[in-house]
Design a protein around this nucleic acid. Sequence first.
RNA 1: GGGGGCGUGGCGGAAUGGUAGACGCUGCGGAUUUAAAAUCCGUUGACCGUUAAGGUCGUGAGGGUUCAAGUCCCUCCGCCCCUACCA
Length: 862
Amino acid sequence: MESRYNPAEIESKWQQTWTEQGLDQTLERAERPKFYALSMFPYPSGNLHMGHVRNYTITDVIARVRRMQGYRVLHPMGWDAFGLPAENAAIQRGVPPAQWTFQNIDQMRQQLQTLGLSYDWDREIATCSPDYYRWTQWIFLQFFDAGLAYRREAAVNWDPVDQTVLANEQVDSEGRSWRSGAKVERKLLRQWFLKITDYAEQLLADLDQLTGWPERVKLMQANWIGKSTGAQVTFKTEAGDNLVVYTTRPDTLWGATFMVISPEHPLAEKLTTAAQAEAVKAYQTQAAAMSEIDRTAEGREKTGVWTGSQAVNPVNGEKVPIWMADYVLMDYGTGAIMAVPAHDQRDFEFAKKFDLPIDLVVQSPAGDLDVATMTAAYAGEGVMVNSGPLDSVPAGKGPGQSVEAAVKWLEAKGKGQGTTNYRLRDWLISRQRYWGAPIPVIYCADCGCVPVPEADLPVALPEQVDLSGRGASPLAKIENWVNVPCPQCGAAAKRETDTMDTFIDSSWYFLRYADAQNESRPFASDQANDWLPVDQYVGGIEHAILHLLYSRFFTKVLRDRGLLNFDEPFQRLLTQGMVQGLTYLNPKKADKDKWVPASSVDPEDPRDPTTGDPLEMVYATMSKSKGNGVAPGDVIAKYGADTARMFILFKAPPEKDLEWDDADVEGQFRFLNRVWRLVTAFAESGQSLKGDAIQQDQLGKAEKDLRRAVHTAIKAVTEDIEGDYQFNTAVSELMKLSNALGDAPDPTTPAYAEGIRTLILLLAPFSPHITEELWSQLGQSDSVHRQPWPTVEAAALVADEMTLVIQIMGKTRGTIQVPAGADKAALENYARESEVAQRYLEGKQIKKVIVVPNKLVNFVAM
RNA sequence: GGGGGCGUGGCGGAAUGGUAGACGCUGCGGAUUUAAAAUCCGUUGACCGUUAAGGUCGUGAGGGUUCAAGUCCCUCCGCCCCUACCA
């Protein structure tokens, strides 16, 4: 009797069995090639959302296929578990951050387990656990030892209401604190930095090694690193100081008519004359109070103030006034610029506003540029003029052009030198927060900043802590934690009370998985060198720069410390698209309030429940604020994890956004039901999966057709997965195979048995539960997931006949069936004799015949 | 302003320069059923053709290369994403 497909029952049954059997544990068999499949680990919010499901399903399919292909696969999961939400929960609900976090982890692990993901849970990590952050601190000390961790004053986002520093991501687009709503100020504080700029060139150059990364992610990183070439030029000030500027256009030095320094420039005070002191001070205060966002707002009118002093242009001896303006940023270049208003738009605007001179040094090819009539800076091609030794040299950065000539001239005269500059800045890692890894250093009055000795790690987070969300780091208030003897001299000393940016935790977690339970080191080098680099990394595009750049940086530093032997952590990267939900919006309402949660809308007649306005429907990324989310648990409860996985893989290519659609989910459920019926009917007919040996040359047409469909499916699914991960087309190939089996006239042949077997095996990585159940119903004792991946039999792909397309003048006019393997001459003959060709060619003269073997014959005729 | 990507049926999406629309969803018609659900079969780009055979058009727009263009080249339009006073 035919049983119904009951996903709830079989899924929990097999999940339990797999856990008991340890089916998903990492296979330690050195003779097999390794494959490391990794999803970006989640923050344990406590709630699994569809974005997670998509991410982990993609990686799981890849891991499962590789296992069947004979690789030993590392496929781990863990938790990016430090971070502010845990502190907020503590403040709002009085639950200790550790307790809140570990509860969430338990909850999310359970949710993950319902998806049938083949993780090796023995390697699970949580960055907030002392077993882990001990090694985060150890790695920090490696950086410290290498001179790559240092402290300096930095301008940070300061919330004047809550009296705390905020991370950039906690400041909204209007420059307000997400918590207090106060306008964020910039404040100078002593902070810890990692010297990522030391690795700027390598981080840029090694992008070339990342052949398996999306081009746009590499571009984003390259732009972020922002390499530019130019020159540093020294201007002497009236007071005799050297004011160094960086410029990418040293050739326009002769057109520099003033200079601008940043309000934070170290020479600012010295350069300011008594007469201007008050105005300059006021300008600096005003600049300091502004957030970076306000300061760099688009289209903002130039502001500035004269310092009262002047410098000498080193190329022509002319005096140029030194101004101060906030459009010059202290943390790019030298914090000072030479202004060439004729050829730089910003300088042009500044010169116009403050009535400063404009000197033309590049004349356009048309020769019609005149400073008296210019309404904008000219940055185009041309030839150098009014530029002494550079006159008549073509303007530009190319070989033999003005920039090259200018650098040569400056270097020869000792007035400057060619340099390379990067936009990348050092990484500020101090956070005035509790729930992070404490920075393991101690301040001693005599010995200075002393690293915590390795043996004393971890510097554990104290459990009893008062979290108010206000003031400096909560750790500073815990006297018996802060006060420790100096590790060097034993005198009374104090701990650093800041914790590390959580991006540090995630910059090395992929290494820990290789040796997750090591108690004496963060990882054994031979283990890490064996498993890494990650063969396939999967995650969201939002980490295109941050996490991926930091991880590359860490890998290179640890390599230089002799701990790793590879340059790049992630060989291939797949950035999966967002999951979008059907979203209702009220077009009459303002942007922020226009979303209407789907739960309060009647889909038959979508109206705003409060105003009665008709609503518009769009697809938008699922989020709480839009009320358009679909809970994974609901879908799994209704259709099962296999259906959810199939839908997500089929609905869109992995890197594109995916529109959640219930009807399509139903479609996948129908497909799995069809597979269920096909296989259970086969099982009940009492046939064996082994079948008789198949003799390809003795098969009838129907069997040959079926075998061709079967082996075409193997080929297509394998190629779709090994190539660019076209899971959507892979699933459609599985559907075609299922359709072919359903259409097969005789379900008792060996070819049919082969088809059933192949369908189950090819489907197994996509839908692990139903395939395991069907496999076992067919009397197989070993897991379907331990079977070898099917291989293509070339002979089975060969058809006796083929469809030949007949074209007249490039237009398809019909097709005929011809024997396969016919040569060009034979194909042309078949085509000539065809009824279609005769009809169209009657009374015409054939000028040319193009024969494409296995495809078509095209007659060019008049 | 700079950089990147994308425009294909009612919808999601397929198409090594070689039959555009695979596969699925939706819609429509039918079978089964007391009825429904489920399932199965057929059909589903537009237009012309009474039916049929067949034809014309059709991948954002316009040009070009080619025997043949969704695919390659040029010009333009539209949308999306990232980034931005970076000297």
